[in-house]
Computed example of a mutant assay.
Amino acid sequence: MIKAGIIGGSGYTGGELIRILLHHPEVEIDFVYSTTRAGKKVSTAHPDLLGTTNMEFTGDVNLNVDVVFLCLGHGNSSKFLKGNAFSKNTKIIDLSNDFRLQKDAVFEGKKFVYGLPELNKSKIKDAKYIANPGCFATTIQLGLLPLAQAGLLGQDVHINAVTGSTGAGVSPSETSHFSWRNNNVSWYKPFTHQHLGEINESLHSLQKDAGKLFFLPNRGNFTRGILSTSYTKFDGSREEAIQQYKDFYSDAAFTHLASAPIHLKQVVNTNQCHIHVHKHDDILLITSATDNLLKGASGQAVQNMNLMFGFNEKEGLNLKAGVF
């Protein structure tokens, strides 16, 4: 078994990691670090773990664990690593956006690999440091990468996606508290969302002349999950597009093409991404759905860990959705 540490374990992504790793047959959680809850039981922040673990948060860090997950706010992972020199044998998986872009991928001699398994599986297997993709970025990229590989994204792509309130983090804000969010829908950061940078880098790595992305993110009145719809001009048939997706994801552990239109409940509480392709006149519509806390964050982080340590890629992640 390997020993794992979690930095920032009191938030949503930290809670998901704890839940997964407690039941992972190849992993022992060595510590869960929190500056605000040190000495308190993990179940005080994650009450669903009451009766599952008596583990306590700690203010101490074991710098010699086999793997450490950084579940910190954006901009804080680099600060933490500057103050904490982990062993050269410790593998690091960062869930913030600090190292996702190529210009940020090298940090104090550490080369971070972009951790989208459907795109970089071979690189992830050999990596010591992983930059876990963003939740919107994961969902949208998985919907578009097969077209980019085939050189079919030469036209502009319009994207509309809606995310649950957990995407905003555990700290309450004006647009995440119940009274505002419930029975409400709104857009935010139109055409400027921070995940566009990593999406564009991935698409352009497969198709240099990929078209411009027009991304409109929305806040939904539900807690978790992302449903994304992307559409662009497409000269081929729906059958040709479907074959492209089947070929691209032929060995994907968690990304699957659906024959019927998809909905969010199919993937919530799983590490799955489900995709559906629809053709209308000369427009191709691609719908993709994930759980923002699992495939969009902690589940994908564990998937990357499995690849890095040579475990079965699905280990600890055979989670099933409850549709009703």
Rank of each mutant, 00 (worst) to 15 (best):
F86H: 02
N64S: 13
K88G: 11
C71K: 06
N97A: 15
L81N: 10
I92A: 09
N84R: 02
K91C: 05
G59F: 06
N97R: 11
G83L: 11
K91V: 05
F86R: 01
N84V: 04
F99G: 02
D66K: 04
N97T: 08
R100T: 10
H74W: 01
A85C: 12
D66I: 10
S87L: 09
V61L: 02
V65A: 00
D66T: 11
D60V: 12
L81E: 10
K88M: 11
G75E: 01
K79T: 12
S96C: 05
F69V: 12
F69A: 10
S78F: 00
N62S: 14
L95K: 05
N76P: 00
L81C: 12
F80C: 04
M55E: 04
L63F: 02
D60P: 00
I92H: 07
S78G: 13
K88E: 15
V65Y: 00
E56T: 15
L72V: 14
N89I: 01
F57M: 04
L63I: 13
D66W: 09
K88P: 15
A85H: 15
S96P: 01
D66R: 05
D94W: 05
V61N: 01
V65Q: 00
V68T: 12
E56M: 13
S78K: 14
G73R: 10
K82C: 09
K91S: 05
K91L: 05
D94A: 11
D60G: 03
M55C: 02
L95E: 03
C71F: 11
I92C: 10
I92L: 07
S96L: 10
S78Q: 13
V67N: 04
S77W: 01
D60N: 14
F86C: 06
V67E: 01
N89C: 07
S77Y: 03
K79N: 07
S87Q: 02
G59Y: 08
G83V: 01
C71W: 11
S78D: 13
S87R: 03
K91H: 08
R100M: 09
G73C: 06
I93Q: 03
V68C: 07
G73Q: 12
S78M: 05
